[in-house]
């Protein structure tokens, strides 16, 4: 009797296990697992895929969406038009972004890497979750000028997309939520953690700092680290670093909070990959690191919301500047900008 029961139990458990396996054609795609790894010594990310298990099919779908001009109203602009890999997924040489019908925006396209650590998105932090980010450029009249509803319709009509949604999510349903989740399976996987600095920190080959780089590291620690904090080189807070407002008069964080205390504060950018991501600042006003350092030395505008650490400016000797620049150079991650995983599949 007992034996019979246990046999039935074993059989039913097998049935149970079988029924829980994904579709056979999903198995094929999901076979090469893709893992999101937190680099050694880095903090816990804000987004960890717990509600959006990352798999190869989802990543590939996200990558296709990222480079697809179909997501814009007139099929001319993709995310990749403004976020180019060779410039760290920023838009090189464009002080402000350049979108549909040659319309220009008010803000500089920020680089895209290490996004899963961000606590908010956009220069003003208006977007509170990475999954809610892609819909914004799609629907922005001067970026891609399309509606998310139309994007869903366009993708639904496309057999390749339908099968990619099936591979990624189990069936062919296309909806805005799945689009968002696929985007994050791609964008969030873009991690830059293999600069010389990272190798230095991990004690790996190729990570030995020169004396000048070590001196520059100290200059950074004394003058920049409280805001552009290691290891991401930003603390994601909103601050005013004393840039004089331009005629655009971008109020920054105050646009979202409606609080005068947040006027002209912007989300702290990272100092990683500066070699590729110029021009700099929320409106791309500076083309070179020297201009940035001159700003900190003598260009700071006093105002009620200026960060107190900057009220006296940051004066560096010529030697310190050279050392600092040598250190900043160790934050450029060539592997990341050349990583074929993130390239458009032609």
């Amino acid at each position: 009797m007992i034996r019979k029961i246990s046999i039935i139990f074993i059989l039913s458990s097998i049935a149970f296990a079988q029924s829980c396996k994904p579709d056979p054609d999903m198995d094929v795609k999901a076979e090469a697992p893709l893992a999101f790894n937190v680099p050694q010594g880095w903090p816990t990310p804000s987004y960890n895929y717990s509600n959006n298990p990352v798999n190869k099919a989802g990543f590939e779908l996200g990558r296709k969406l990222f480079y697809d001009t179909k997501l814009s109203k007139d099929n001319t602009i993709s995310c990749g038009s403004c976020h180019q890999q060779f410039s760290g997924f920023a838009q090189i040489d464009h002080p402000v972004s350049h979108g549909i019908n040659d319309l220009v925006g008010n803000r500089n396209s920020p680089p895209l890497f290490n996004l899963n650590w961000h606590t908010s998105f956009m220069w003003d932090g208006g977007i509170n979750h990475i999954e809610n980010q892609p819909i914004a450029p799609i629907q922005n009249p001067i970026e891609m000028d399309e509606t998310m509803a139309n994007v869903v319709t366009k993708l639904q009509a496309d057999a390749t997309y339908r099968s990619m949604f099936k591979a990624a999510f189990g069936d062919e349903t296309v909806n805005s939520q799945r689009i968002a989740k696929a985007f994050v399976q791609f964008m969030g996987m873009i991690v830059s953690s293999n600069a010389k600095y990272d190798k230095y920190k991990r004690g790996e080959a190729g990570g030995a700092f020169t004396q000048q780089e070590l001196d520059g590291y100290n200059v950074y620690k004394q003058n920049c680290a409280t805001c552009h904090a290691e290891p991401l080189f930003t603390d994601f807070s909103f601050r005013n670093n004393g840039l004089p407002p331009t005629s655009v008069n971008d109020s920054g964080r105050a646009h979202i909070t409606l609080s005068a205390a947040d006027l002209y504060k912007f989300k702290m950018p990272s100092l990683r990959n500066l070699k590729y991501t110029w021009p700099y600042m929320h409106d791309g006003r500076f083309n070179t690191i020297d201009q940035v350092l001159n700003h900190y030395a003598s260009g700071i505008m006093q105002s009620p919301t200026l960060d107190t650490k900057l009220s006296g400016g940051i004066a560096l000797t010529d030697q310190q500047k050279e050392d600092l620049k040598a250190f900043l150079n160790t934050l450029n991650d060539e592997e990341f900008v050349k990583n074929t995983m993130f390239q458009e599949v032609k």
Binding site: G126, I127, I130, N132, A136, S176, Q177
Partner: peptide, 18 residues
Amino acid sequence: GAQTGALDPNNAMFWDWN
């Protein structure tokens, strides 16, 4: 993050910029 059904942003009841 991204929701669906009644909470789908395509219901024109969602601010994407804030």
